[in-house]
Write a protein that binds this DNA or RNA. Structure first.
Lengths: 229, 229, 229, 229
DNA sequence: CATGAATGAGGATTCATTCAT
DNA sequence: TATGAATGAATCCTCATTCAT
């Protein structure tokens, strides 16, 4: 009954609601996929698991995604948006490139630890290897270049440096999650990274010692879960 | 009673002759698994693919492994043995710890490039994350400690350093395979690693410039393939 | 938000039209299972045999049943419904409890003989032992109690008596099917049962002598078999 | 026993050990089969489970049995021998046919309760239905005939009576095992059986009230288990 | 767009049985 | 005889995908 209302009006004033509806369903799917990963980790997740969790018909999936990969990539983007936004906010008053990098790394690690979610999802992501942190890499590269221009970093190939950093970060995160390395490894990594960028160890140490200012974990907009009547 | 006892003694008698057969079959399976990975990479590989390739009945697989993971782990071990043996040979006359590490890294990268095999297999290996290079890690750790004792490296936590190196290497390898980084990245990585261990950049550069002495790729002992009569 | 709510309401809307399809498919599976048992008896019956016979895709089975046992239990229930309905009809004008029991037993045996079906299926049913005739047991128990109230039966523990009767009936049926006992055994069993319930032998004999009025074998509603175009 | 002696003497003196060995292996298989049933009940039991348990090579099975059914039938016989021997001993001084039957039934039930073994195995026995108690049926039939001759029982068709008794006993046993009937059901069954054979209820009650004289559970000759060195 | 029943190829796993040693 | 490796048909079960409603 309600349902019909939207469609009826297709024409005039709520041209808005259709796209809204689409978006909502899509988001429900993305969230369902994410949550399932977080709960089950490595385990196989079927499309029907996802639609089931999203309280949506099986076929509906194909109105939004072609393949399972697609939805997972959407999850990643979803995550990254949150991440990037928060980080930008967090660093808006920082000028020193070294500090910017330190904060980024620390924030990243903080997420990885606090938010078992992010952590385990990135860990999982059967997706194309390095792909995962892509958006972030742009930021990182920019940071490095800024540092080089400012004469703080000694790096011949910023692109290479950035890639290596990504690798180090990723590795540390996994190793910590693993238990292979203790939690202090994260600070150490930040420090080694700066050292690698050419900062004297003392400076590197100093910069990485400042604790990360407290930051709201990325707010998870609640999804309306359909209640079974 | 006598009778029974006699039979008992017969039991593990042939633990010697039969095992040959067992070993051969097992090896055939391991090789088949490896080869398939090398050919198909990520793609799905079914157990029947493996047994088919190994010229062995479907059920035979289960006489040797419980799960597909098991056989892949066996492949890794197989590989590592070859790798470690060759590397040991290669470094037997080297004394300088920095050089030892440089050679190890370079040899590793060489394998990764020459041998699409090793490369793609490590890439693949959905196996427990960082785990993959384990044996090698022991060697690496020993190298670092030796360097520290010798006063060449400045490292507070060798374990951490080793872990980070593993991560860097792994990352570089993947990125190169990916095309994200060019092939020169490998030399650069070695250099950065040494730098990270506390060597002055000039030294690091010097040490990593020596080309790796030519080395026979690990010989693959041929497996006797059963011929269908 | 509106949007979401709307969708919710759409949800169980067609619980009416679709279910018809579901019911039909389910019934086809149940029937297929039954028929196969009837044809093959003890022999192994695979799930694919069932779906094949039901003209239905392999996977479809799992939309309705978890396990093979499940479908067989459904068959039993299916049968029992038919049985109970017919029996009720058959006895609707009978008042005497002894006669009611006699008729029930005889009808049961009749089915077992006429209908190789019922017979062999019960024989088969590796299902939870005595369980098989459960619904029927309720009826039987009620009959006994009625007889006791009416002062015709002398039974201390109706529940026990009922159980024993079930056992005797079942046994007789199997033994007859077996050839161990001749067909007259069924009348005898009915007679012994009444005797066991405390009736004088003469009466028991008399009551069990009346032939069972002819009765339509339970009509099998035809299942619509999907025709392959 | 005679039988065995004959074979032994077949030639000269140690023609003895060979057949002994055969017998031992055979018995090991039979016992293994039995024990597995007792432990696992309904669950699937493979031939390799049996040979494994018997500490015997897979192929060995086929030196003794053609099929799995065969070994299970052997188990039944094994059991029955024990059962019959003990029962004969137990009743050797009893003259009254009613009492003989009562004792037989009670002994049987006792086994079923004490010896969860016997119980669960008979319950299981996917084997041809009524088959299970065959040997026993001969005894039972003889008992009935004796009772009829002695004028204690009023039975027209002893064969039928025996069959029905078997059925009742079997059923009671299962129902008790099931929990459907309480343990006292066994005494009741014995009593109803006698009643059914024509004894006045008072007598039936009296005869079935005597407790069964204590009896050693059938001794299980230990099988030599091969110890893994 | 939404739905969910139907599908069937694909893959894992079991196990009775054979046979060379 | 005893052995146990090898076998492969048989079976179960999953799940991405289609499609009529």
């Amino acid at each position: 009954m309600e349902a019909t209302r939207n469609r009826d009006n297709l024409h005039h004033l709520d041209e808005v609601s259709l796209p809204d509806r689409r978006k909502a369903t899509r988001k429900a799917l993305v969230r369902a996929a994410r949550d399932l990963v977080l709960e089950r980790g490595h385990e196989k997740i079927s499309i029907q698991d996802i639609t089931g969790r999203a309280q949506v018909g099986t076929g509906t999936f194909y109105n939004y995604f072609q393949t399972k990969q697609d939805v997972f990539e959407a999850v990643i983007l979803d995550y990254r948006e949150e991440f990037t936004a928060t980080l930008t906010e967090l660093r808006k008053n920082i000028k020193d490139p070294a500090m910017m990098i330190a904060v980024a790394l620390k924030y990243y690690f903080r997420l990885a630890q606090d938010n078992a979610e992010w952590n385990s999802f990135v860990t999982f992501s059967g997706l194309p290897g390095t792909h995962v942190l892509h958006q972030d890499e742009q930021q990182c590269l920019a940071d490095i270049k800024r540092g080089v221009s400012a004469g703080r970093f000694k790096v011949e190939d910023p692109h290479f440096a950035q890639s290596l950093i990504t690798g180090m970060v990723r590795h540390t995160m996994l190793a910590v999650a693993d238990g292979t390395l203790g939690p202090s490894a994260t600070d150490n990594t930040a420090r080694y990274v700066l050292r690698m960028l050419g900062l004297p160890d003392l400076v590197a140490k100093a910069v990485t010692q400042d604790p990360l200012p407290p930051v709201a974990a990325p707010r998870k907009e609640p999804v309306n879960i359909r209640v079974i009547p």
